[in-house]
Design a protein around this nucleic acid. Sequence first.
DNA 1: ATTCTAAACGCGAATTATTTGCAAATAATT
DNA 2: AATTATTTGCAAATAATTCGCGTTTAGAAT
Lengths: 144, 144
Amino acid sequence: MTKNDANRQLLRKSGYKATPSRLAILGVFKKAKKPLSAQEVINALPRSADQATVYRALKSLNEKGILRQIDLRHNHAHYELADLTEHHHLICLACGKIEIVHHCNMEETESRILRSSKHFAEIKQHALEFYGICKSCAARRKKL
Amino acid sequence: MTKNDANRQLLRKSGYKATPSRLAILGVFKKAKKPLSAQEVINALPRSADQATVYRALKSLNEKGILRQIDLRHNHAHYELADLTEHHHLICLACGKIEIVHHCNMEETESRILRSSKHFAEIKQHALEFYGICKSCAARRKKL
DNA sequence: ATTCTAAACGCGAATTATTTGCAAATAATT
DNA sequence: AATTATTTGCAAATAATTCGCGTTTAGAAT
């Protein structure tokens, strides 16, 4: 299966063993349409893996930049594949709805920041999320 | 005391009672040089308050926009006063060091996003944090 | 193919972070 | 001073994440 071979290589290239759980976790993210929490990954796995295994995998994959961590303000971390085209999230503070946002052009900002920073040598990632109210929540609130 | 009077008004204006714990919590943030976790607030309080009280206060103050929540990737929320001049954070993935970043000009981006969004009515806040490696961690790593 | 070994796993328990229910206390209003 | 809706403290619950450790296993070396 070619998809698994690609993931297998990806893991090996980062110095990890290509274990069934890690391959399965990557598979779950490949299918996902939105950032997933550890619990959602656990639930979505075809053959169950221990929660410690999943947490460890998420952490490692995030450290190597295969996944990226997203803060949706839900008191727990979410992750998504890092190789998606550059985008950010618009999150409804009332209902949690997520919309994808493109074209924020952060590379330029990052290099400018780095040039003027006293203490930092490198920027590896950034998180840019917008929190607001979605239209249906806004409508619902007007009625009250 | 004039400073407390200002905070007292701020709280009342948001519909809250100006209780000693909330005034003390605002006092702690006023002195702080960096975003604080709930635990750090608890430790910094002159007269101790219960953790439930502190968590409840942080949540309310964040909802009313007096505090804002920051994600430093430490598995717990941090907060800072919302009325600081617009800035963001540069966080070292290796040691946690924080540097303040100015001039990211997000208002323009926000209004553009809102104009092109299908589902969102309003943007209330954003989080923009940069994660990288600080110079001293970079140096330490080279030696290894 | 078999052996070897560091890395990864599963399990259970520990930690850490945050929330909740409820009775008592209290800030603001009258 | 009396009233009342908020807020507090306490203790316990829940949620999120991590850790220790004995066992298994992927990949390298024979």
